[in-house]
Amino acid sequence: MAISLHWLIALLIFAGWGLGFYMHDLPLSPAKLRYYSWHKWMGVTTFILAFLRAGWLATHPAPRLPRVIPPWQTRTARITHFVLYLLMFLIPLSGWLMSSAKGVPTVYFGVLPLPDLIGKDKALGDFLVQVHKWLAFGLAALVGLHIAAAMKHHFMDRDGLMGRMVPFLKSPRL
């Protein structure tokens, strides 16, 4: 379950980034509005799946890291994972708040209208655009660090750690 949620959330995050960058500078059109709806759907779904994953993790703790991993790397991994989870909640929440402040409803999959979290406020909406953007850039940096660490463990350390999230993967051997 944890592995499936990990990769599904990763896919949604990458798709959300791609769509977010693509749609941002498009001229106003029906297509742009459709892309914004899709982007919101991805965000709401990521938010829900992150809660499911956090709940799963609370009841099914991840295996301990191998003892050969230095303590500073273990601490860094814990902090990074905590911040990744935090951002998986804060980014969709900031987008929802932004939509509420801008007076644009969030309708999940075009069927389920979500309540506005705050009243319409243009200045706050403009501020939340920046918050949403910079949180997403922060997430991108942490995901880059996460991927770099996975590659280091797989190709340099050859400790089999990456195989925990990619079960069919074996640690390379020379």
Rank of each mutant, 00 (worst) to 15 (best):
G160N: 07
M162K: 02
L28H: 10
L57D: 07
S99D: 07
D159S: 07
L5S: 10
S37L: 12
P66G: 01
L117I: 11
P63M: 00
L161M: 14
A62N: 08
P113K: 06
L135M: 13
K133V: 13
L142A: 13
L52E: 01
W134Q: 13
I3L: 13
H81I: 06
H154S: 08
Y35W: 14
I48Q: 00
L33D: 07
W56K: 04
I69V: 15
V129L: 14
A150T: 12
L86V: 13
I69G: 08
W41N: 15
P30R: 03
M88K: 00
F21I: 14
Q73G: 11
I91H: 02
G119A: 10
F137C: 08
M162H: 03
T76E: 07
W72A: 14
D121E: 09
H81A: 07
G103D: 11
S29H: 08
L49P: 09
P115G: 09
A31L: 15
F109L: 15
A31F: 14
I3K: 11
L28G: 12
K102I: 03
F47V: 04
L84W: 02
V111R: 14
G125R: 07
G160A: 09
G138P: 02
R164E: 05
F82D: 04
F82N: 01
Y108E: 02
D121S: 08
H154P: 12
M1C: 11
V83W: 00
Y22I: 12
L52C: 14
M162D: 01
S29E: 06
R75A: 14
V111S: 13
S99V: 05
D159K: 08
H60S: 11
P63V: 04
A123E: 11
F51V: 13
P71Q: 00
W17N: 09
L97V: 10
G20R: 06
S99M: 06
F47K: 02
A31W: 12
A58S: 11
K133W: 13
G119H: 05
T46L: 14
I147E: 03
K133Y: 13
L52H: 02
F21E: 03
G16M: 05
V143K: 05
A123H: 09
L86K: 00
W17I: 15
L26V: 10
A15I: 12
V107M: 04
I69Q: 06
A148W: 11
V104D: 06
L117G: 07
G138N: 02
L112S: 03
L65W: 01
R67Y: 01
V166D: 04
R75F: 10
R164W: 03
L97T: 06
H60M: 07
H132P: 07
G103M: 10
M1F: 13
V131E: 08
L57F: 10
A141C: 14
L5C: 13
P71F: 01
S99I: 05
I118E: 02
G18M: 07
P167Q: 02
P105K: 02
W7T: 08
G125S: 10
K170I: 09
A141Y: 09
V129N: 11
P105C: 06
K102M: 14
A149F: 05
L87N: 05
L145I: 15
T74D: 08
F89N: 02
G16C: 04
I13K: 08
G20E: 04
L135V: 08
G103S: 07
V104L: 12
F109H: 05
S171W: 00
G43W: 00
P115D: 05
L8Y: 03
T46H: 00
P27W: 00
M42T: 06
A136H: 04
G119I: 07
G18R: 03
H60L: 06
